[in-house]
Simulated scan of single mutants.
Amino acid sequence: MKTHKKLLFITLLHFISIKTFAQENKIIIPNFDDKYSKYVKNLENGELDIDYTDFRNSFLESKQYNLKKSNYKDLKNQVYSEIEKKNYQGVINATKAILSIDYTSMFAHKYLQQTYKILGDAANQKKYHDIEFGLLNSIIKSGDGKSCETGWHVTQIEEEYFILSMMGAELQSQSISNGGNNICDKMEVKKDDGSLKTYYFEANKVFEKENEMLKK
């Protein structure tokens, strides 16, 4: 009888641990009745054929944007730490925590899909890969990055650094530039081959949002 109770207790603990584990690894979908929340819900349900530019813009207009927590940078550092330790479950936990804060994070989608690839989860690898490149293409197809007038349109500064890292470019200097009706980040970089390049990111929405936040 005691053995039976002990086995039952162990089984119950195992069930609770599995349930808790699943909850810890779930991306939290915002429950606001706005465009951003609906986009996140659709993407998590596998509906990936969306307007990714509109999705990125919707985050700026969402209530979720105002809830972007101070631990966001800590979570990014945690991702690097878990990668170094080859703790793949830790990478998944941290990247999903980031996506629960900002689902437009290409950084989180990149490391999440790469981890699923390592673990042999082809379905999730493809899902988050396609979201990552949907977001990325919505930026690089918005211009050519060669001048402020034709700069790549960004909504957050971290998008600029993500694109530069994907290009294998090391930032040398950053300054503000103007062209036409655009305010741009002018990024002077060194490529992997040692060549020097200058890229422009049209950051009108970034500066608009910063001004809006300062007025609050």
Rank of each mutant, 00 (worst) to 15 (best):
S81T: 13
F55L: 09
S58P: 02
N87S: 15
S81C: 03
V79G: 02
E61I: 10
Y80D: 09
I83R: 09
V79K: 06
Y65A: 13
E82H: 06
R56L: 01
K85E: 13
Q78M: 10
Q64M: 14
E82I: 03
Y72H: 07
Y65T: 03
D54R: 06
K73S: 15
E84C: 01
L75W: 01
E61F: 10
N77Q: 09
Y80Q: 11
Y52V: 10
Q64R: 14
Y80I: 08
N57I: 06
K85L: 15
S81P: 02
E82M: 15
L60Q: 06
R56C: 06
R56V: 00
F59N: 04
K68F: 10
Q78G: 13
N77L: 05
S81Q: 10
D51H: 09
Y80R: 12
S62E: 07
D51F: 09
Y65W: 08
N71R: 08
Y65V: 01
Y65K: 04
K68I: 11
V79D: 01
Q78Y: 05
S62A: 12
L60V: 03
K63N: 15
Y65E: 09
D74M: 07
D51G: 08
D74H: 06
E61R: 15
S70V: 12
L60W: 03
S62I: 03
Y65S: 11
N66S: 11
Q64I: 05
N57V: 00
N87W: 04
Y72F: 15
K73Y: 08
S70H: 07
L67V: 07
E82N: 14
E82R: 13
I83V: 10
K86G: 02
V79C: 03
N71W: 03
E84N: 13
D74G: 07
F55T: 03
S70Y: 09
S70C: 00
I83N: 04
N71H: 10
I50D: 01
F55E: 03
V79R: 00
S58N: 04
K76I: 13
S62D: 08
F59Q: 02
L75S: 05
T53W: 06
K73L: 12
K86M: 07
N87V: 04
K69A: 14
S81N: 13
E61G: 01
K69W: 05
T53L: 11
Y72K: 06
K76F: 02
Q78D: 11
V79W: 03
F59Y: 15
K68W: 10
K76Q: 14
L67A: 04
Q78L: 14
N77V: 03
L75V: 08
D74N: 12
S58I: 01
I83E: 12
R56D: 02
S58W: 00
E84D: 12
F55D: 05
S58Q: 05
V79L: 07
K68V: 09
N66A: 00
Q78R: 13
Q78P: 00
T53R: 11
N71Y: 12
L75Q: 04
Y52F: 15
S70Q: 09
K68Q: 09
N57T: 02
T53F: 05
L60E: 01
S58E: 01
K85D: 07
D54P: 03
K73R: 12
K73H: 12
